[in-house]
Design a protein around this nucleic acid. Structure first.
Length: 109
DNA sequence: GGAATGACATTTA
DNA sequence: CTAAATGCCATTC
């Protein structure tokens, strides 16, 4: 029983993403100090809690939406519904829409 | 305990 | 620019 499984930490980071913003698998993995880009998506694919976590705010590093357990179109619709501009399946102004200011775990001084 | 999977990333041609 | 191949990590069967 670990304090927080790998996927659990990903969810914690996703919960920190404000509306209208998106993050990438690489950012999440990098925030956890790992290169398990795919592992992040894998955790979402299993989708232990599809409603508790806005997994639809996670996109690929190229600005593409990537995949979604409920279907890629659903993800795009959700993101646009949140205010994310998407064109041809790509996020417009990805650099501005991307959110990587994750608050790392509370380091004990 | 081991093998297989995947909603990715990166590099090279 | 597009396309293909390889690597990489954690989770799951």
């Amino acid at each position: 029983m670990q304090n927080l499984s790998f996927n659990a930490q990903c969810y914690a980071l996703l919960l920190q993403i404000p509306v209208g913003r998106v993050t990438t698998y690489q950012a999440l993995a990098h925030a956890l100090n790992v290169k398990a880009y795919q592992a992040v998506g894998n955790a979402m694919n299993r989708n232990p809690n599809p409603v508790v976590v806005p997994c639809h705010r996670v996109v690929k590093a190229d600005g593409q939406l990537g995949g979604y357990a409920f279907g890629a179109p659903a993800k795009e619709a959700l993101l646009m519904s949140e205010g994310v501009q998407i064109k041809n399946g790509r996020i417009i102004d990805f650099a501005n829409t991307l959110f990587t200011d994750f608050k790392t775990e509370p380091l004990k001084i």
